[in-house]
């Protein structure tokens, strides 16, 4: 047993522990507690800036999308419409389109035709209500167009920040990448709360009201296909697409992950994805693989098809192909 001058619990202080509390100690303690409390309040002061209704009891108690009754979902969607109207100045029509029977979507992109114009990336923004700082800000677009060096399919020497006068450049070719809606999707496997899953038609969706924002899915994705709302989305009223869907293009809250859903608000209603419709070269082919007569089936069966990162074993529903 060493004796040391700076012992902080001496026998004398221990003695006090056994004694009843004195008035003096009590007052001292209360004064200390007040100072501590004041410090705590000061530290938490930034919370005053929280918007009204940003965290409500309803939100905290809301169940997972797949546990909601149709009535509950309807009520929540109405609330979301009100909220969007109040915060962004546009009242959307919010729907919840279900997967169609006998449909499994697949997407193919013709690398011979793509000219790298990025119209698809912009159309994606216009359709899906992603946050953007300005007109040219396409960082939240679900499509990243890679400018590739001819002679190889090497991602490492590619760039997304190309900015020449005209495209395509002679020594380059272009490869747009978006969510591959993988059949063996690593993102849904790793989500700790099942906030993201694969629907019957093959589309991987996110329940934005259930996602906890851990971003494990982003770490798992081999295609850099997921975006995170690092802040509350900024959108001008004129930039908002009011035709919205619960599991796809509704305006996301801050702190959740979002991704390409093959525009399910359109494709489940029989339309093409926005990126396909806008493509000036017809490089994009979309359809139902379960339909033997579909164009997508023809491509997959007859063209030289390339699967990006096939070695990772994710079995994408997104394919690249080349014209002969």
């Amino acid at each position: 047993m060493t004796e040391h001058s700076s012992n902080n619990v001496s026998p004398k202080t221990i003695e006090q522990v056994y004694q009843p509390m004195t008035r003096r100690t009590f007052l001292k303690g209360s004064a200390g507690a007040m100072v501590g409390l004041a410090g705590l309040v000061a530290a938490l002061k930034p919370l005053l800036a929280l918007e009204k209704g940003e965290i409500s009891l309803d939100d905290l108690l809301q169940r997972h999308y797949r546990q909601l009754s149709p009535a509950d979902l309807q009520r929540i969607m109405t609330q979301l419409e009100d909220k969007c109207a109040a915060e962004y100045g546009v009242r959307p029509t919010l729907q919840d389109l279900k997967p169609l029977e006998g449909v499994q979507f697949a997407y193919a992109l013709n690398l011979t035709r793509c000219i790298g114009c990025r119209k698809c990336a912009h159309a994606c923004l216009a359709e899906n209500n992603q946050s953007r700082a300005g007109e040219d800000d396409i960082s939240m677009s679900y499509i990243r167009v890679l400018e590739m060096q001819k002679g190889a399919i090497n991602l490492e020497t590619s760039t997304v920040y190309y900015d020449p006068e005209t495209v395509p450049q002679k020594d380059k070719y272009y490869m747009p990448v978006q969510c591959h809606q993988c059949q063996e999707s690593p993102c849904t496997k790793v989500c700790p709360v099942q906030a993201t899953w694969q629907e019957k038609d093959g589309v991987v969706v996110v329940d934005y009201n259930w996602c906890i924002g851990c971003r494990y899915c982003m770490a798992a994705c081999p295609y850099d296909a997921r975006r995170f709302n690092y802040q509350k989305p900024t959108l001008k009223p004129e930039a908002i697409n009011p035709n919205q869907n619960y599991l796809s293009n509704r305006i996301r809250p801050k702190g959740v992950v979002e991704k390409c859903t093959f525009c399910l608000q359109r494709t489940r209603a029989g339309k093409y994805p926005a990126c396909l419709e806008v493509c000036p070269t017809g490089a994009r082919v979309f359809g139902n693989v379960l339909d033997p007569d579909s164009e997508i089936n023809y491509i997959l069966n007859h063209k030289r098809v390339y699967i990006l990162k096939e070695e990772v074993g994710t079995l994408p529903r997104f394919y690249y192909f080349f014209d002969a």
Binding site: L60, K189, V190, G255
Partner: peptide, 30 residues
């Protein structure tokens, strides 16, 4: 450290059954 990393710490309970849903055994985070 995990909590401060969450985009939605107010939904922390989604990770804890029975309030939440556990993606077990699929998710290593679970």
């Amino acid at each position: 450290f995990v909590t401060v990393d969450l985009g939605h710490p107010d939904r922390f309970h989604h990770m804890i059954p029975p309030f939440g849903i556990f993606n077990f055994p699929g998710s290593i985070l679970s």
